[in-house]
Write a protein that binds this DNA or RNA. Structure first.
Length: 409
RNA sequence: GCGUCGGUGGUGGAGUGGUCUAUCACAACAGACUGUAAAUCUGUCGGCUUCGGCCUUCGUAGGUUCGAAUCCUACCCGACGCA
């Protein structure tokens, strides 16, 4: 018995995109879908009730963070992550692979998921070896990764097996293989070396997972890496999709990982999804600006997670609207007594004005961050919902064109 | 009335003869953010500018000095104390 069931209901003609249904032990996800990120067992600023009301179908928490605090064993004793955080819907956990990157090679360099080469601050020198003298909190070894806790500095060692063990304790419906995310500034030689490691770790994750009963209630997704290189990307997609445990088990779905230059994102996703088997779900890790969501859906991505809506909302009240992003603290909104978007159905837009939001942000009231998060999550969640409906209605390209015309103007 | 202390840029508050348009914080203004080291971070914050500078500011008015936010005098204002 497989833990998840994925069914494709409609495809975009002559393209990779599709709409489907993903059934998990904690409920069904209509795909494509936007996944709310709840790294530390909370979508920042949102109660599970608010998430549900906003239209959220599924959340993603993080292995590394929860292992450090409060500890995966404690969460297991609490009855698992669903019970612990009060979210009884579908849930996934990231493997800690991204922290290999963000606390390792990317540490202190101001780079993350998407690199902007035009930004002088991101002209990072290339790195070919593991040691360039920059202090970092994660060091990659062939067997696993040494982490120094960003909380208290203590040293931890995470292997693929350890990541699986933690994720088993957490108990999410979909879990990820332990991988190494690389920077686009790395040269090909290192990308290939890291890819071999990611594949070896994927095999070990698969092996460990299927040696436990958890494999019956938790789906394991393998992660495709390979940077910007077509050959590596296609090779990774093929190897991960053909990978089998000694018992013959395969991955239940796939994640597409990496840190990208904006221009490389499209090609990487397309190459990978041309190789991956059609009948399993695909998750594009950490991507979620509107234009990227359209690209992903068009190219066969079923699930997206992204911190952008909550982080942008919470930090300075940067809000998504159909006319592009707006910063609610800008002077012009101080006496604007209209909603963020008059035709938005979210709780924030149906109850409050821009002026009120602006006031909350200027006064540093936490409700401002909460209401802004509600709107942003609603916006992106419903944008992907609209894409799904448009695929089913056969109007995906019309939706994309009309949205982008207004959003990017 | 006498005495003491004090008046600095939107605010608080450094500075006590040159390195002062004047540390710092806050506020304000603008920006960044894509598997959350993030309720974080960056820039601007007297005026003008051909971006090299130029001009104007430290209660007010004088003065000393090559040079004053910094020293002196008078005045104005505030707090406290004594009458």
């Amino acid at each position: 018995m497989k833990p998840i069931q994925f069914t494709i209901t409609k495809k975009i003609p002559n393209a990779l995109g599709r709409a489907g249904v993903l059934e998990t032990p904690h409920g069904t996800v209509q795909t494509p879908a936007f996944v709310s990120v709840g790294t530390k067992a909370t979508v920042k600023g949102m109660t599970p009730e608010m998430l549900k009301d906003m239209g959220g179908q599924i959340t993603l928490c993080n292995t590394y963070h929860l292992y450090l605090q409060p500890g995966d064993e404690l969460i297991a004793r609490a009855g698992g992550l669903h019970t612990f955080m009060g979210w009884n819907g579908p849930m996934m956990t990231d493997s800690g692979g991204f922290q290999v990157f963000s606390l390792g090679a990317a540490y202190g360099k101001g780079i993350s998921k998407v690199l902007h080469p035009a930004e002088p601050s991101q002209q990072i020198p290339e790195r070919s070896s593991a040691d360039d003298g920059v202090p970092r909190l994660a060091t990659v070894g062939n067997d696993g990764v040494s982490f120094r806790s960003h909380i208290d500095g203590s040293l931890h060692y995470i292997t693929p097996e350890k990541s699986m063990e933690i994720q088993h304790n957490l108990g999410a419906d979909l879990i990820f293989a332990f991988d190494e995310c690389t920077s686009p500034t790395e040269e090909r030689r290192y990308q290939e070396e890291a890819l071999m490691r990611t594949h070896a770790w994927a095999k070990r994750s698969l092996e460990y997972h299927h040696a436990r009963p958890n494999a019956e209630r938790q789906a394991l997704l393998g992660i495709v890496q390979g940077g910007r290189d077509e050959e590596l990307r296609r090779r990774s997609a093929r190897e991960i999709s053909l990978m089998r445990s000694t018992g013959g088990a395969e991955f239940d779905g796939f994640g597409i990982g990496g840190s990208f230059e904006k221009d490389d994102l499209h090609s990487a996703v397309q190459w990978v999804n041309e190789e991956l088997p059609e009948d399993k779900p695909r998750h594009l890790l950490g991507i979620g600006e509107p234009e990227d969501l359209f690209m992903g859906v068009e190219n066969g991505v079923d699930l997206f997670d992204c911190v952008a809506p909550t982080r942008n909302a919470r930090s300075t009240g940067t809000l998504y609207t159909k006319e592009g992003r707006m910063r609610i603290m800008n002077t012009k909104y101080r006496e604007d007594f209209t909603p963020i978007e008059s035709d938005c159905g979210c709780y924030t837009c149906t109850h409050f004005t821009r002026a009120y939001l602006a006031h909350l942000f200027h006064a540093k009231e936490m409700l401002g961050s909460m209401l802004a998060s509600v709107h942003n999550l609603y916006f992106l969640t419903h944008l992907v919902d609209q894409m799904r409906e448009a695929i089913i209605a056969g109007t995906f390209y019309e939706l994309k064109e009309s949205f982008m015309k207004s959003y990017a103007k």
